[in-house]
Design a protein around this nucleic acid. Structure first.
Length: 551
RNA sequence: GGCCCGUUGGUCAAGCGGCUAAGACGCAGCCCUCUCAAGGCUGAAUCAUGGGUUCGAUUCCCGUACGGGUCACCA
């Protein structure tokens, strides 16, 4: 029995690796083009950390005219959930980050280097595992779970490193004949990597983000093919990223400590190793401790959470990019209208330690993003959101599109646009009072602040509507009239005038405006009242004033 | 516990041997102003800690503390 025969015994049908090497030729890309991937497991909802990785990977690829692909890592069927792939694909689409290659629905894919779903690549992995067997770089291991548990217990008792390595690697040195015999006898087995590493030797690794990191060599004989015939992550990573031509592996830094193993695997398989960029995860402050955003405990870990709140995907991306490269913020300030693809993203400028997630900052970013939208866009996006999450708002918006558009147009489109909407779920509260049925069905709490005398209030309202308000007035004229009204009724026409001599007046023009504003809208704070009055129109203003007078 | 990584204001961070230690969010105050949202200005607030090296350390080296990651037939 020799290695070749053993390999044939284990994988009789596996193809020669030449077949795959030829089938997936080197990519023909321009110099410096970077190939990256997003390689999630369909084990739960799309995580904000996953989106972050995907965004970074995609940005880097786009910047170099490279390729960004999506590979689904579903080699653990036990953990797989229903719609896992669909959720990932849709999330990327929602964020306008659809991959150049890879899965585009839960079953379909595009690209020449597929399949992009690992469970469909079993034959490929087995071919490479067979190759390893033939080279004597892998071997079948017959250890049962009990044996492994026992080994671990002994190691812990002896206070030595746990794992399958060195003298503990019980089946590593079986003779080929013994191996073959057991296999033929039907003893269950898996395939292990036969590590040549030594723990007392160091390997050097230069991570694109983390910088120089030295590790002891890997000496663990890790499993490469599991009992179900599928590969472990490590083996699949080496085979796939080689065949798919990945130049930069951008992944979460929980993988950093596996780098020695991965480098070793690439080496033993005869592959050129990719560059690695290990990203620090997004953290959360939990009672003074930093910890990773958790799928279980933190609603904000789910990408869907932001959609539910109505934070535009563009805002989430900007925020994430901000965390990734802090220079982004300045760039954005200087280039408010450029696409994020034009930003000169630097992988090596990414933070080495994990950033705390900051909802307040996200909302600020979101506010700015929304302030740049046209009224038409605000209408479109908020309506789309409302249809999913707030049917009442959807009805309001749809009841009169032109009217809604006018409302969204208030103080929008100039160089200092209004910034009062941070998320679509703010919209209803922001515009509600502009719709008569909503305004009237709600019990308005008329609080006029400084001026509280009922008669005075009625006088202001009556006089204003009867003698002053004209829909055709320019803004300045409109305001001069309010001043005039204030003066006529004994209030200070200018706030300054009042402040200089507060005893001389019962109030000032601002107080008079407040009366009008409260009667008109039921609130003390609103956007520009001139525009609001124009939109509402004289008849309805009158009606609202009448309503206010009855209260 | 072993092995790795990290630690600049409340948060995100710039910095790369000599600076009054940028900027942003948040906070406070002022200005503008018919009220808000903005915008403008001002302010409070930071180099975890102890040793070195150096004429000089936030920056380089070592230790300590704290935080994080990893040690599966999970990814």
């Amino acid at each position: 029995m020799n290695y070749k025969e053993l390999a044939d015994l284990i994988f009789p049908d596996a193809k020669d690796i030449e077949y795959y090497e030829n089938k997936y030729p080197k990519r023909n890309l321009k110099e410096g083009a970077v190939v990256t991937r997003f390689a999630p497991s369909p084990t739960g909802f799309m995580h904000i950390g996953g989106l972050y990785q995907a965004l970074v990977a995609r940005t880097v690829a786009k910047k170099t005219d490279g390729v960004f692909f999506l590979r689904v890592e579903d080699t653990d069927q036990k953990r797989e959930i229903e719609n896992g792939v669909t959720d990932i694909v849709n999330s990327l689409k929602d964020f306008n980050m659809a991959p150049d290659e890879g899965m585009i629905t839960d079953t379909e894919e595009i690209g020449e280097y597929g399949p992009y779903k690992q469970s469909l690549r079993k034959d490929i992995y087995q071919a490479y595992a067979k190759y390893m067997l033939e080279q004597g770089k892998a071997y079948p291991c017959f250890a049962t779970q009990e044996e492994l548990d026992e080994m671990r217990a002994k190691q812990e008792a002896a206070k030595v490193r746990t794992g399958y390595y060195g003298v503990w690697a019980k089946y590593r040195n079986l003779s080929l004949d013994e191996m073959a015999e057991k296999i033929k006898a039907g003893v269950p087995y898996i395939v292990r990597f036969k590590s040549q590493g030594r723990e007392d030797r160091k390997i050097k690794h230069k991570d694109v983000i983390k910088g120089n990191v030295d590790f002891p060599e890997n000496d663990q004989d890790i499993v490469i093919i599991k009992a179900d015939g599928l590969p472990t992550y490590h083996f699949a990573h080496a085979v796939d990223d080689h065949l798919m031509g990945t130049t930069h592996v951008i992944r979460s830094d929980e993988w950093l400590s596996s780098v020695p193993l991965h480098l070793q695997l690439f080496q033993e398989l005869g592959f050129k190793a990719p560059k690695y960029a290990h990203i620090s995860p997004i953290m959360k402050n939990d009672n003074g401790n930093k910890r990773k955003l958790s799928k279980r405990k933190d609603p904000e870990a789910a990408v869907s959470y932001y959609e539910e709140l109505g934070i535009p995907s563009a805002a989430v991306k900007e925020y994430l990019l901000n965390i990734a490269n802090s220079t982004f913020e300045n760039w954005r300030r200087q280039n408010p209208d450029k696409a994020i693809e034009e930003f000169d993203f630097q992988l090596n400028k990414m933070s080495v330690s994990g950033a705390l997630f900051d909802m307040v900052k996200l909302l600020d970013v979101s506010k700015i993003v929304i302030s740049k939208y046209t009224a038409e866009e605000v209408y479109k996006y908020s309506l789309a959101w409302a249809k999913r999450h707030d049917s009442e708002l959807a009805e309001m918006l749809e009841s009169n599109k032109d009217y809604s558009l006018k409302i969204f147009g208030i103080e929008r489109g100039n160089k200092k646009p209004r910034k009062d909407i941070a998320k679509w779920s703010d919209v209803k509260e922001t515009i509600e009072y502009m719709y008569d049925d909503k305004f009237e069905e709600k019990e308005q709490n008329y609080e006029y602040q400084t001026i509280s005398d009922k008669e005075k209030i009625n006088e202001i309202l009556n006089t204003y509507i009867a003698e002053y308000y004209d829909e055709d007035d320019e803004k300045q004229v409109w305001f001069d009239k309010i001043k005039d009204l204030a003066g006529r009724l004994g209030y200070a026409k200018e706030v300054k005038e009042y402040k200089e001599n507060p005893e001389a007046f019962p109030g000032h023009v601002g107080d008079v405006s407040t009366v009008l504003r409260v009667a008109l809208t039921g609130r003390t704070n609103t956007p520009d009242m001139y525009e609001i009055m124009k939109i509402i129109g004289k008849d309805r203003i009158k009606r609202r004033f009448e309503l206010a007078k009855t209260k």
